[in-house]
Design a protein around this nucleic acid. Structure first.
Lengths: 340, 340
DNA sequence: GCCGGTTCCGAAAACGTTTTCGATTCCGAT
DNA sequence: ATCGGAATCGAAAACGTTTTCGGAACCGGC
């Protein structure tokens, strides 16, 4: 069907091994034959079968992007896509090939991490969407295979983390609200058990405390990161609280901010004239809402790029496992009004 | 490292071939040994190495999702993600494994379609984002490998298309505007050369003509599907046209509609009170804009699901190559006002 | 002309499967 | 008892690479 390495070998009058070494830049080939082999390979339109290579080689440059929870409905699409873009960007620039694998918690229980890697000849992986309770977290720590987790804290001799300082970022976001004169702040909280929620909560506490404010329990609206819950939560909130009980809503995600704005609109209030709202994530959609939402950009595309770079460096022994903290970006838009 | 088929064979006291046949439901195995082999395989935690299988087998159940233009900035993320979700949904339900490959026009020129498939042992592919001028279009038509294109019309003995009737859909969208009393309609056009644009244009013409209206050239704003161009286009339009020259904007994509609304807001006009706007695609973001945008839902997730189903059916000989037209859904929201 | 050391390349093993082919066993029928 | 054929399984080729090992050829130096 297609042209294999033996076709090239035959055409060039050498053995398959020689062709392989010539094309893979081995040293023990005379420049003469190397050039000839490269030429005939080009003439025949030869490209190596990556599957066969993957099966054979001991040092494959093939890395995997493993997405957990991708199929769940609550998941924001933009994250995965941006991540993919970042990874592929790096992959294109450096000639590595990336495979994508979609899993969930159930699959993790059925098939071990090592098995998954073994099945697909994965030499190193980037993992996204892992919950701290997921089976793979332990597996990563024990594995000899280098890997990079994104936004999930896992420790192990061969596991790196790419993340950003969510505590500092949420602190900064909170501080921004305060600096704009807001004192009565309601926190719209994500899933209680989620690590990402807890970090952001810590950041909020930190900033409030520093400014002599306190975050009382009745000023927190709990959600599961679902937009509708934020809407309902705000509607409920005003049933038991006076309108001027709050001036700003501090949301743990952009989607929650959208939900909050929706509720405020239903109540006939305007943003940011009557209430200020901030989000977190930096989704594209925050540019298209009315008003555009002030948020913290997680810079997820760069996370993907840096994760891929870090993983390749680990695979090729240039870098140790490490925790890589990327900068976040407070993006001021139109959903906050200066008051007081 | 991991447990291979020979480990199972040794443990069960049979040959590797027997293990393979036992696990793959071949007939010529006594139920006795089959049960024993399955049991030991389970005990050892054996999972087949899919790479090796892919290299060896003649009838692989592995299909690929090939995304072209994924890295380009103008691309809407939601499309690819939704498509992936649909494909994976089907894959999970039917135990096939999907690999994702990201390409662009440049890669298409450098590496042939057959080569790409050969490299990754792809037995059948779903292709998205293909332009009619792309090299792969011809390649698909000539290939013996079954494939499914999404929204790109390609004819060939083994190529199916999954699409929706864009002409009818845009006709319906236009008709809806007209039925709401709109007579003076401006069309916000996508990339002129793109097939998708031409189909939508045809639908608009068709509906206008049926209602005794005409779509004059000066009533068309051309863009490259970029939001900013739509904004600028509308701003420019009103420099040379009176405000009441138009009552509705008919946009070829949701992003263009967002751009139009942005322009109208800048001009101090309200939607839908002063002008009506409709989009096309059914992106999630149309639910979060203000107002929510009336649009045609392309139902892209189902496209992915159906494409995967169709491809597997073709691979296993249950269905011929065909053109599959999925239903579209006119989703009426808040961006159109009834007038007249 | 012989020898030690490079330089270059071919032969073949290895990766883990699937699948063909043929060999063995077993059984009932002749 | 012999045979035909079915049932069951083992041996080995095949998939297309990479990589190890060793052998040939060549070289300069003695």
């Amino acid at each position: 069907m297609s042209v294999t390495i033996q076709d090239v070998a035959k055409a060039a009058g050498v053995s398959v091994g020689t062709v392989s070494r010539a094309l893979n830049n081995y040293a023990d080939i005379s420049e003469n034959t190397r050039a000839r082999i490269i030429r005939t390979a080009q003439e025949l339109g030869y490209h190596p079968n990556l599957v066969a290579r993957s099966l054979s080689t001991k040092h494959p440059r093939s890395i995997a992007l493993i997405l957990s929870g991708f199929l769940e409905e609550t998941i924001i699409n933009d994250f995965e896509t941006m991540l993919m873009k970042g990874c592929y960007q790096f992959a294109f620039e450096h000639g590595v090939d990336i495979s994508i694998h979609v899993i969930n918690s159930a699959i993790q229980r059925r098939k071990s991490y090592e098995q998954l890697c073994y099945e697909h000849n994965i030499s190193g992986a980037i993992l996204f969407g892992l919950k701290t309770t997921d089976p793979y977290c332990e597996a990563l720590a024990d594995s000899k295979r280098p890997c990079v987790t994104i936004d999930t804290e896992v420790k192990g001799p061969h596991v790196s983390n790419v993340t950003l300082d969510h505590i500092a970022a949420f602190d900064e976001l909170t501080q921004y609200l305060i600096s704009q004169g807001h004192r009565r702040i309601v926190l719209v909280h994500g899933r209680k058990e989620a690590m990402v929620s807890m970090e952001r909560l810590a950041g909020a506490y930190q900033a409030m405390e520093r400014n002599g404010l306190q975050l009382t329990h009745d000023r927190i609206i709990y959600t599961n990161f679902l937009r509708e819950e934020a809407t309902q939560g705000v509607l409920d909130y005003f049933k038991t609280h006076a309108p001027d009980d709050v001036t700003a809503f501090l949301c743990m995600s952009d989607m929650l901010a959208i939900g909050v704005i929706e509720a405020l609109k239903r109540l006939g209030r305007r943003v940011p004239q009557d209430y200020s709202v901030v989000g977190y994530d930096g989704l594209d959609v925050t540019n298209y809402t009315d008003p555009r939402i002030t948020t913290v950009d997680q810079n997820i595309k760069e996370k993907g790029y840096e994760a891929a770079r870090l993983l390749l460096d680990m695979l090729e022994g240039r870098r140790q496992a490490q925790r890589l903290v990327l900068p976040h970006i407070l993006t001021v838009k139109d959903s906050v009004r200066r008051i007081g």
